[in-house]
């Protein structure tokens, strides 16, 4: 339950701008994935669903799954590594972005 990135076309006419500097909240047009050097990989076998990583993620990219495990929105993960560092059971490891082709 996060806002989604939407297609955005720059205004070509002045009337397409908002009439005041006020805009729809949660309006996202760009991702943050490009910031990442390391990428967190969750091992669902090791994850005990304590949700510590979910709690302390600065970007809110870690969500609970139905079976009380976690999944990561890689579009907005900046790869800070807090989740891996804070995981008490070492269920998250940071891998070099380039090495992780499947993502």
């Amino acid at each position: 339950m996060r806002p989604k990135v939407r297609a955005y076309k720059r205004p070509s006419k002045i009337s397409e701008y908002p009439s005041a500097p006020a805009f729809e909240s949660g309006h996202l047009v760009t991702k943050n994935a490009g910031w990442r050097t390391f990428v967190p990989i969750v091992d669902p076998e090791k994850c005990v669903g304590c949700l510590r990583c979910y709690l302390v993620c600065p970007d809110g990219v870690i969500a609970r799954t139905e079976n009380n495990k976690v999944e990561i929105d890689y579009d907005f993960c900046k790869g800070c590594g807090i989740c891996a560092h804070e995981c008490k059971v070492k269920a998250i490891t940071m891998k070099k972005e380039a090495d992780e082709d499947e993502i």
Binding site: P3, K31, D59, C80, I82
Partner: peptide, 10 residues
Amino acid sequence: FYGHKACAGC
């Protein structure tokens, strides 16, 4: 609060 441009690890 989602999709912000804060530094990683902020």
